[in-house]
Simulated scan of single mutants.
Amino acid sequence: MPEGHSVHRIARQFDRNFVGREVEASSPQGRFVEGASVLSGRVATEVQAVGKQMFLSFDDDIWLRVHLGIYGAWDFAGSILVDPTIASANGRMGQTNQRGTDLDDVRVMDAAGENSLTSIGAPRRTRVHVRMSEQTTGLADEGADWPPPVVGQVRLRLLTELTCADLRGPTACELQTPDEMAATVARLGPDPLVGDPAEGEERFVQTVRRKPTPIGLLLMDQSVVSGIGNVYRAELLFRARQNPHTPGREVPGEIVRELWRDWVRLLSIGVETGQMMTMDGLSPDAYRKAMAHRDDRHWVYHRAGLPCRVCGTAIVVEEAAARKLYWCPNCQA
């Protein structure tokens, strides 16, 4: 399931390519025909991401709510104005690109092992001629079909004169009134990139400290904190050396605060790079390697049976709320 950084990246893509523009909407799959007919011909006015959900507003106070869930993804095509802080080697946004980025091809890293795209002042415009997956990249020729042909089960197609966004496989795709949208957001836990992070920290700490639920489950509860999924959950707990089974109310307050502050850091890195980079203190070469390959990017996630990078103890995996939980039974004892 896409975690919070992916949804914020998608929102920024919509902000640059759709907000302020009239949009033609359709439902090639046929499962959102009525909603698409309401949106078609309206101007997109605002976009917000909160945790794993995105909200796109249109004229007359109509909001489109999208929750990608496990299988959802947005595919962008056409003339794409890319936010320099979220540049990617492909057109797909949603299902996290765990395969990594070919750094030599996209030139996103400088000699210091940092994302040099953040220093580029002007956005880049990229031409994409086909639906692009995590395995394909390319540039269009000027004779490419427009709009691009529909491929697969497209729940919703949003189209401007220059840019196309196709939504596939979402858990939720619905229209909301402003009150309904506000109520949805109110049910979500704090997101470091929405509102005041200090207020979000206090809300998170107070919620966790009164719960008997294990902290490993609380971090995945979107009403407690927004955006954390399976990868970030495992990595945050390891970085804090926190046992995932400890009830929230028994986790020391300073650890709870550090979990929030670490989430602030890791979310920002994820939005910037498009990768869930959770290891610190890497050399430039090690950082490049980690950015290109998931196996070199995480402390414990997806490392069941492998030695802990700190103590050598075998990483264990267990089921927690129907999701796999990875942790070190020594470092996180």
Rank of each mutant, 00 (worst) to 15 (best):
L236E: 10
P284I: 10
Q48T: 11
V23F: 06
L266A: 08
Y232C: 09
H293Y: 10
D141E: 14
A292H: 05
H302D: 15
A111D: 15
V128I: 15
R233E: 11
W74V: 04
H302V: 06
R42Y: 01
G312S: 02
A240Q: 15
V256F: 05
G94P: 03
D141Y: 05
M291N: 12
T101W: 14
S40W: 04
T96W: 10
G143D: 15
S226A: 15
G72M: 02
L159W: 11
V33S: 14
D145T: 15
V256Y: 06
S88Q: 13
E142S: 13
P84D: 00
T207P: 02
C308N: 02
G138P: 04
F238A: 02
M93C: 06
R157Q: 15
C308K: 02
T160I: 06
Q48F: 00
P192R: 03
L237N: 05
H245F: 10
Q98N: 11
S223I: 02
C328H: 01
G200T: 06
L64D: 11
G195P: 12
A320K: 03
R261D: 14
P329V: 04
L282Q: 15
R210I: 05
C308V: 03
G274E: 12
T273R: 13
T136C: 01
G113L: 07
L56G: 10
P178C: 07
T278L: 04
W74P: 00
V82C: 08
L236D: 12
Q53N: 06
P244F: 01
A73H: 10
F32I: 08
R124Q: 14
L266S: 07
D145A: 15
A25S: 12
I120S: 08
D61Q: 14
C311P: 09
T160P: 07
N230S: 12
E318K: 10
P192N: 03
R12W: 00
V208R: 01
R107Q: 14
F55G: 07
V108P: 01
E254N: 10
A314T: 05
I315C: 00
E272M: 13
T118D: 09
T273E: 14
V66M: 11
V33F: 01
E161Q: 14
T96I: 13
R124C: 03
T96F: 04
G78V: 05
M279G: 00
